[in-house]
Amino acid sequence: MKIIAEIGTSHGGNLEKAKRLIDCAVESGADYVKFQWVYADEILHPDTGFVNLPTGKIPLYQRFKELEVKPSFFEECLKYTHEKGALFMCSPFGIRSLEELLSIKPDAVKIASPELNHIPLLKKLAELRKNQNIPLVISSGVSHLSDIEEALSILGRENVTLLHCITSYPAPEDEYNLNLIPNLSRVFGIPCGVSDHSLDPVLVPSIAAALGGTMIEKHITLSKETDGLDDPVALTGEQFALMSHCIRQCEAAFRQYGENAKGYILKQLEEEYGERVEKIMGDGVKKLAQAEEANYGRTNRSLHFMRSMKAGEVINMEDIGVLRTEKILSVGLHPRFLDKVIGAKLTRDVEKGAGLQWEDFTIHN
């Protein structure tokens, strides 16, 4: 099982802190060190709402703006990661970050759950992968089976790993439904693992390993008390090392007992955690977890007006953003309809940030 230490944006734009996080990840047993290539306008509209931080309530868009760094930052992180003997993975959030990411030749690209339906991004990635068959990891939080199928129909399945995920921070262990790991692998014919946002460093990762997961992703932090967006749900280095040790113990069990190792591992976990193990395994049917039901459509992407416009105006590409709706804006049309929207004429006035609706425009063939 490959272990991903998700640094994300916990570095806060500070290169020295990023290097300390890389050191922590590698020393704690990570195979991959992962970052997020953030440009705020690829993710959110400026009017998307607020986020509560220890320093107060601030606009979420502005928080992402503060996390923007130059490409040279990631070049240095990639170089340093390689020097430490690990692999470099990163998530892009739009076309610009994708192209800049591929230009530094990462070891793998990760598509995060909210971008699973970012159709323009997926199409561009599929185009660029034709000449550079870089390993690809995609997360499937806050999604239906049809969403995964559509994404894979664009990206293909060669050199792709799927991560089951619950998009909730923290994610309740009991809702993880880890029997999805072997089921999704069979359905799509690709390796499957888990992106884990639960707080326990042992339970979800160990059960995932027992069920044949090939990859585990967990956030890592230097301290849960710092102001990184994901720091409260991340593992400290000591916790991450414990997780890595448990996963390697599961692998050793498979080497010793073969397929019988699954029962052996689960029995050991049940002796310590009781009936929680069975609950975490779930029924293996793909559905939205209760913790993420309210986020479907809001956390993932839809079409939004970038400026206020008047009835009669024609919609151009620069007028539309493929964005996360998040806090207060209205959810728009699915990104798959972007091509139909461009060139359409507005039938009524619209406000900046609002999600596009079919009633907003007419399409002229």
Rank of each mutant, 00 (worst) to 15 (best):
P135W: 06
A294E: 11
F188C: 01
L266Y: 06
D200I: 02
L266K: 12
L346G: 05
K124A: 09
E238I: 11
T362K: 14
E313N: 12
P46G: 14
Y61E: 06
D200G: 04
P135I: 12
D41R: 15
S206I: 04
N131W: 05
V51R: 14
E66N: 11
C192G: 00
L203D: 01
G321W: 07
G312M: 09
Y39P: 00
V26T: 11
D31C: 07
G212R: 09
A344N: 08
K84N: 09
I3E: 02
H219L: 03
E351I: 12
D200Y: 07
P170Q: 12
G228D: 13
S195R: 03
I220R: 02
Y61D: 03
K218Y: 05
G353I: 06
I7T: 04
I138S: 03
V137S: 01
P205C: 08
K279C: 12
T167G: 02
E75V: 03
G237S: 13
T226M: 13
C165S: 11
H364R: 11
V187I: 15
Q132F: 14
V38R: 07
P191W: 02
L242G: 01
I43V: 14
K123V: 04
N183Y: 13
A5T: 01
E238Y: 14
L53W: 04
R301S: 04
F254T: 02
F50K: 11
F240C: 01
I315Y: 09
K340L: 15
